[in-house]
Every structure is written in C-alpha cells, then in structure tokens.
Nucleic acid binder design. Structure first.
Lengths: 194, 194
DNA sequence: TTGGAGGCTTGACAAATGTCAAGTAAAATT
DNA sequence: AATTTTACTTGACATTTGTCAAGCCTCCAA
C-alpha cells in the first residue's frame, strides 16, 4: 500500500527515491481504514492526521446554522485530505471529514511531516509542488464562484473532474457546487437538452 | 522602505533577523512604484514579480467573455500579490494586476525567492507561515461562496476585512463578493435598515 | 467655473436559484 | 425477496440576484 504513495511522490517530483529516503517516508505513515460513513475528523476537535487516500473517497464539509452540509472538497485515490488550518495550528476544526466509500488511508501527524521535510529533500520538493497545485486549484475555484452561474460551474466540473460525476452522489455534487440538489437536477436536465 | 518588510517578517515569524540575513533579503528585492491604474501584470503575459506592498492598494482580476471584471483578491499595505500559478510555473497568466491607488512595492523574482529560502531559515519559516495562512483564507472564502447569500458574504467581509469597505470603491467590493454593483447597493441598504 | 466621466442609487422587470411538497427510483438492510 | 431508507426528480411558488435604463452626485481636468 505504501508503494502507491511512493510512486505518487516519485511521479509528482520526477525523482527516484533512494531506499533510505523511502524508508524514512514509509515510517512516517500509519495505515488506517475507514468504512463508509466513518469519520476521520469531527467538528470541534483538532485535526490530528493528514491522510493520503489509497482507496475510496472522502469529503470535508461544514454544517451551517440551518443544518445544511457544505462540501468544501473531495478526495479520491491519490489525493490528500485534512483540515490544514486545524492541523498546523492545533485549533478546533469547523469541519467534518468522513468516508463516502470504504477507504484505505496512509495517515501522518504534523510532527512527522515536518521531520520528513527536514530529512528528505525529495519529500520537501513534493510538498511544495502540492502546495503550488493546491494554490492554483483554489484560485480557480474562487474564480468559478465569482464568475459563473450554476450551469457554468457544472460544465467546468465536467471538464476538470469528470470522475466526480460518475462516482459521487448528486446531492454531494450539488453541495460542492454551492447549489441545492433540486437546482442541480434541473441544471443537468437543461445541459442534456443542448 | 525595506524596514517595513523586515519588521513584517520579524512579526510574522516571531524571530529577529541577523544583519546578515536581513541583507540577503534586502538584496533579493527591488523597489518599484506604480501610479493609480498602472499594471503590475497583464493577462497573457508571465507573472515575473512577487510584490510586497508598502503603500497603496492593488487588485488581481480576470475578465470574462462578456467583458466583466472579476476581482479575485485585493492587496493593501503589508500584503503580497502575484499570480502564483503563472509565477512559479512560468505559464501565461489569465489575470491582471493593477494599482487601485498609487503604490510602493518591493518586488522579487522566483529565482531570488528560492535562493532566499535556501539561504535564510527565517525567510523559509516566513513563507511557510504565509502559505498556511493563505490556505486557511482561501478555504474560508470558498466556504463563504458555497454557503452564504450576498448579504451574508457582505457581513462576513465587514467582520474579516472592514478596511476594504472604507477604502475600496463599491463596484470593486461588489466584484470581489461576486455580486453586481446594483445588488451590493441594495444589500447594503437592507443591512443598514436592520 | 464648467462640463464630462465615472461611481452610486433606484425602479421595473427578467432570470436564476431556493423552498416545500409530492411522487418515483434506487439502494441498503433485514 | 421484502422492506425500509435514502436519493433523485418534478411542479408550484418565493426569494435572490441580474439587467437595463435613468437620475444624481462627486471629482477632476480643461
């Protein structure tokens, strides 16, 4: 299972990990499995783990005053998930993370990650590439919200992450897009007709 | 002018810069001034500079098919601005950055920043703290868009960045919130009446 | 001083999205 | 397989937001 992570790091950084470095990284992670609907993080608690997904799907979401869920992000195989604000500043999280499907994860703590950055230049490079990508992705997402209608955001999602539409339930897609399930249903229909 | 940046770095990192480190950092930046309406970045070009604002205000925005401007972010004194995707990956930017007021900036290139990270542990710490903060801020912003109405986003802005409302024109605030100027005007009125 | 130009507000109407309720389809559980 | 729960769709209507047009105000430049 660690091989998936190893290959992922090597792909992203275009480097080969020495056996020594690979061992350091391997030792920094613990294997963890979640059944559907189990939680990795509960609102109000501190996010202790950064998780790499080797199988399954998760979501991070908040719950507003009226009890509505708002999904901020999904994570599928090869993605990372955690509430980074809570994780790095040790503050109680406003978010929940739970499994949409049964999942296999490799989890690590903040101390272990920091140590790894010290010990492995490749891992350091890896995290900074991920940070850049995340930066770009969130920028694009904000852009989409301030500029696009629901239909345009759906079309954008179809181009950017078509897997989501095949794999995740409509009500979650709707929440991710900032729409109600009813509106998404109608917008989908309109889009079909074109 | 460099003293503002130096103190900023010291504040954020809770460290004191040695004279040697301070010099390294100082040498990595060049002073640059912009008059109102002058551009730091034009759409379609590569973003060569990361800018620290010592005086004035700027915005980063895109222009859609219909010619509407969409402001992604503002930068006031003590803030940083650049299109980081273009900056670090050397791709043409989809964004424009221009001065809302006359500005004084300290600008640096990607190579210089990377070199600085190598040479100054304090600067390295500084950038990772900023990354974390940026991460948290964009998360909150996405959150606001998927959960809030226009009125709620305005109220949120009043709590988070009250300076914006005093200093920046309404039409830009509207664009930042993803509303038309007309809608913002009405929403403001409603909020006053409460 | 005066004449724009741009920014802000308001009104009337249109389009997009939300809410509530009902019905149907699909999936999970027994 | 039967039952129960959950997800999805649709209709009717309410709310929010956008669009277009007009008017007012302020600031700046001629």
């Amino acid at each position: 299972m660690f091989d998936i992570l190893r290959q992922h790091i090597e792909n992203i950084t275009s480097s080969t990990l020495s056996e020594e470095e690979a061992l350091i990284i391997k030792n920094a992670f613990v294997q963890k499995s979640l059944r559907r609907r189990q939680f990795l993080l509960h609102e109000g608690t501190i996010c202790k783990y950064m998780a790499f997904v080797t199988r399954g799907a998760l979501r991070i979401y908040s719950i507003d005053d009226k009890g509505n869920e708002h999904i901020v992000r999904f994570a599928l195989e090869g993605w990372w998930i955690c509430d980074r604000e809570s994780f790095s500043q040790l503050t109680p999280s406003q978010y929940n993370i739970d499994a949409i499907e049964d999942c296999d994860l490799l989890v690590s703590t903040n101390e272990q990650l920091n140590q790894m950055k010290q010990l492995s230049p490749t891992y350091m490079k890896f995290t900074s590439i991920l940070d850049e990508r995340h930066y770009a992705a969130t920028h694009r997402r904000i852009q989409a919200y301030i500029s696009y209608t629901g239909e345009e955001r759906l079309r954008d999602l179809m181009n950017t992450y078509p897997q989501f539409l095949l794999r995740l339930p409509q009500n979650m897609i709707a929440s991710y897009l900032g729409l109600t399930p009813e509106t998404l249903s109608r917008v989908r229909k309109q889009l079909m007709e074109k």
